[in-house]
Design a protein around this nucleic acid. Structure first.
Lengths: 128, 128
DNA sequence: CCGCATCCCTATAGATACTG
DNA sequence: CAGTATCTATAGGGATGCGG
């Protein structure tokens, strides 16, 4: 930790190009190592492995053996992880507003701007 | 740009340990190179210089000669930069909720949770 | 001196190849 | 499938440079 500033604290976790993309994938419902690996940004296996461990160590993600296929691990967001949904939404809203051509659902942005809390709840529910 | 995902787009800017701390400083009202340099995290001069250029190139920050002391440059957030305030707030709320001992004003968090839009407007106003 | 930019070197992030 | 090992590129720290 570089300082007691809350922004700095958050950046100590997410101040890199990959960690938050895994959170995004989890919010989108992805659960398995191979799903994260196949995301279009193309994360390297060592980075993915490292970040999953870091996320788990810090209580943002938890994993368990996938019952239906025991060779796979199933990853999920903890409550601390789900509390990142608002941050994710703000990132999407900002990017959409200031850059054209991004893959953003207009309805999503509308809901973020008009019924924010409801949108957050809906996303949370989907994850349970 | 790694993909057309809005989260990825935002991380292409802010996916490092320093860029967003400068935004934080600007939101707190800091204006000069030396102010950023003196922030408690201790940024190096080459990194600061590099990030200020990057922020300016990307339309998040603008600079002009400081009229009262022409040897100094005065930095300020553009509209695109000010639109990062909600993101900043969410980072603070999340960090405060999940880590004790951070320097966060409880009243700030209360306002973020109860009268978010008002808080955003108030911060914006302070910057004009 | 002061304010900032550049240089150089090390540490770490990340890409590719490989393995239990 | 889910990682580790190895190698390379880049970020970042500290010193130094340079124009007021």
């Amino acid at each position: 930790m570089r300082s007691d500033c809350p922004v700095s604290y958050a950046l100590d976790f997410f101040g890199d190009k990959w960690t938050f993309l895994i959170v995004r994938d989890l919010v989108e419902g992805k659960k398995f190592y191979k799903d994260f690996l196949n995301s279009k940004e193309g994360i390297a296996t060592n980075i993915l492995s490292d970040r999953l461990k870091k996320l788990e160590r810090n209580g943002i993600v938890e994993s368990k053996v996938y019952e239906k296929l025991k060779t796979q691990k199933e990853y999920a967001l903890t409550e601390k992880g789900k509390d990142l949904i608002p941050l994710l939404i703000e990132m999407m809203v900002w990017s959409d507003k200031h850059h054209t051509g991004l893959a953003v659902n207009p309805d999503f942005i509308r809901r973020a701007n008009t019924s924010r809390e409801e949108l957050i709840s809906a996303i949370r529910l989907r994850l349970d």
